[in-house]
Amino acid sequence: MNIRLQERQKEILKSIVEIYIKTNKPVSSEDVLNNSNIKASSATIRNDMQKLQKLGYIYQQHSSGGRIPLDPALKIYFEMIKEAYDVKVNHIELPKKYKFYDLNLLFQNLALLISQVLEGLVIFEYPNPKYVYITRVTVTPLTEENSVITILTNLGLAISRTVEIYGLPVSEELEKILNNALVGKSFEKIFSFLSTKQIEIEDLRITNFVEILEHLTDEFKRVRYISVGLEKIISKSQPDLDTIVTLAILVENDKIKEEFFTRLDFSPDIKVFFGKDINSKTLKNLAFFTTTYILNTNILGKVLFITEKYCNYEKIYLILKEYTSRLSEIISKNF
């Protein structure tokens, strides 16, 4: 929080932001007096608003008009919200209708829930392969020509693929070989192995081992993000066509997501950024909330929520904090 601001000035700034978000109209000194508990005269509030304007926190369209909060004001306001709440206590009623059993469905369901509750775009990053370890491999005969191979992981994520058994050992032996080769290894190590194709297994009947492994792990490597809620942000914010196109490209292209994520700061704390922070004029009217979910103390994946700039910061903070904390708690406790 900026040390140049007095407590009264911070409260005035907070009031301006809240009134503008509620009314979408420039805020006057009288508006601040009538909608806050600030003990000061109208003249004092006007003087403080002049200082806030000179510091770049608010903007006045014309000399007789009210003020509009700018990005720096929104950031200070968000920090005030975070400081005001004990995150261990729910200050608003939060939806509790979510279950965490199958982690293959968890991220999709959780992203959908956050998107619906907050009416915005959610992008969930799948767990970092560095922390996803294989715990078991099963091989189940399906037909005379095919078997189903399933990889189970420490996070409860499961990957199943149907493969042709031509040229492979019988199911029991193949299962044993795969378990001996893979159990205890992280996906990061497996991806490194596949990139060099250094096969340590000498059994000639498994010459297509690498092909099977690539087939099994392809989806985990290929699908890195879940994106939900593009229609929500379009419906609520009604952005211009350029903004819609930019968001659509972000949703559809994982390489664009990777590049976009590098321009933002992610940590277990919840932070907010704006289009100006990432040098994007197209996205200047949107807010980007970043956080992570963790496995014990390790950051497992990133979470990005996108909505209109003038939004309910309090609700967004509490919802994101609740659900990402709950997700981290269950993953760390159960896996």
Rank of each mutant, 00 (worst) to 15 (best):
L283I: 11
K82I: 15
E314T: 13
K185M: 10
E211S: 14
P72W: 07
K257E: 06
Q9K: 07
N37W: 06
Q61W: 12
K22W: 07
N180A: 09
I190V: 14
T143E: 00
I151P: 02
D254K: 14
S227W: 03
P141T: 07
Q60M: 12
G120R: 03
L5M: 13
R205M: 12
I306L: 10
L318M: 15
E172F: 09
N296H: 11
G120Y: 01
A43F: 13
Y133G: 03
I226F: 08
I249L: 13
G56M: 05
I68D: 01
G56F: 06
S115F: 04
A111Y: 08
I316L: 07
I331P: 01
Y131A: 04
I234V: 15
L304Y: 05
L300D: 03
S332D: 08
C311Y: 15
V183D: 00
F187K: 01
I206F: 06
V272Y: 07
N2F: 08
T262P: 04
I256G: 01
I114P: 04
A43K: 15
L113D: 07
F288R: 04
A181V: 11
L110F: 08
K281L: 12
T291P: 13
D203F: 06
D102T: 03
T292M: 02
I206P: 01
L55E: 14
K189D: 15
I294A: 07
S41A: 04
T290C: 11
T150D: 00
E322C: 03
V117H: 13
K39W: 00
E30N: 14
S29Y: 00
T282S: 08
L174C: 08
K232F: 11
L121P: 09
S280C: 09
I249M: 10
K96T: 14
F260T: 10
K54L: 11
Y77L: 04
G156W: 00
E175P: 00
K176Q: 12
I226E: 03
I316T: 14
K276T: 12
P127Q: 02
H215N: 14
K284E: 14
Y131T: 03
D86I: 10
P141V: 06
V27G: 01
L178D: 01
Y225I: 03
L152I: 00
F220L: 08
E202A: 11
I92A: 09
K99A: 13
I45A: 03
V223A: 05
D203T: 01
I114G: 07
I38L: 08
E172K: 14
L216K: 00
V163F: 04
T297M: 03
Y293P: 06
K309C: 10
F193Q: 11
T297A: 06
D265N: 15
E200P: 06
L152F: 11
D102L: 02
E211L: 12
I190M: 10
F335K: 05
E11L: 15
I149D: 00
F261P: 05
L112Q: 13
E219D: 14
L103W: 10
E231Y: 07
H62W: 12
H91C: 04
G66L: 01
K22F: 10
I38S: 08
I319C: 05
K257Q: 13
T290N: 10
I294Y: 09
F100N: 08
I234D: 01
K130D: 12
Y85A: 02
S332W: 09
N285A: 12
